[in-house]
């Protein structure tokens, strides 16, 4: 279980997170929704070690992660598919996937996981020799998720997988997220597309300007009137 307690993060003088606490139980899909600048990506980047926190604690299975370098976080079993996909455009699909397994040295395991990723995304196998920059947006997102899975994570963090994709493609990505979760990978999903995210999430947190304002199961928040108004496009009467 990933546990965040009273986490404060600031960029220069600006407070991005003002003491948030949340839990990601094993085997579940947890989503963090909120508007632009609410601190969603900051949360994710702090967990992965790309951003330093002011105070608080992040523990994964009782192991403190705060202040640890990125490779230690990855070794603990937390991988991420960063915002905006960020695949390596001049590397082939296969090379991209191999970079995902960069910290691993078990050749057989890597081979097995490569097969697993190809099973999840047959499209990637078809195009394994192609440069990642020539893939479509949806395929690049698949590659970003596949690349993150290549480190064999127990917890996968995804930052806005629906960003800039057509609705049909987004549906495909969310189906895959569910499949990955059913195969035993815990998912922490950060989304602006609250409707889709809440539908597949077991638990959901709402983040507003650095504070967690609401918590509940996905279905609960989906039915919540204020959430509907703020994020799901229901008109005020």
């Amino acid at each position: 279980m990933l546990k965040i307690e009273n986490l404060h993060v600031s960029y220069g003088g600006i407070k991005a997170l003002r003491g948030i606490s949340l839990e990601v139980p094993d085997g579940k899909i947890v989503t963090l929704i909120g508007a632009n600048g609410a601190g969603k990506s900051t949360t994710l980047r702090t967990i992965s070690g790309l951003v330093k926190a002011d105070s608080g604690s992040i523990t994964y299975n009782d192991q403190e992660l705060l202040g640890k370098p990125i490779n230690k976080v990855l070794e603990a079993g937390i991988a991420q598919a960063p915002e905006g996909r960020r695949v390596f455009p001049n590397l082939t699909v296969l090379e991209n996937l191999k970079i995902g397994a960069y910290l691993r040295s078990d050749k057989d395991g890597i081979e097995r996981d490569l097969k697993w990723v190809y099973e999840l995304f047959p499209r990637l196998e078809e195009r394994h020799w192609q440069l990642a920059g020539t893939l479509s947006g949806g395929e690049q997102q698949m590659l970003a998720v596949g690349r993150a899975l290549m480190s064999r994570p127990k917890l996968l963090m995804m930052d806005e997988p629906s960003l800039g994709l057509a609705p049909l493609v987004v549906q495909g990505i969310f189906d895959i997220i569910r499949t990955i979760n059913e195969q035993g990978v815990t998912v922490l999903l950060i989304e602006q597309n609250a409707n889709m995210a809440l539908k597949i999430a077991d638990y959901a947190y709402v983040l507003e300007t650095g504070n967690i304002t609401k918590f509940g199961t996905g279905a609960e928040l989906l039915a919540d009137e204020s959430i509907k108004e703020a994020y799901l496009g229901k008109k005020k009467k």
Partner: peptide
């Protein structure tokens, strides 16, 4: 992509 490379460890 330096940032993505860093995220891969």
């Amino acid at each position: 992509d330096e940032i993505a490379a860093e995220a891969m460890g």
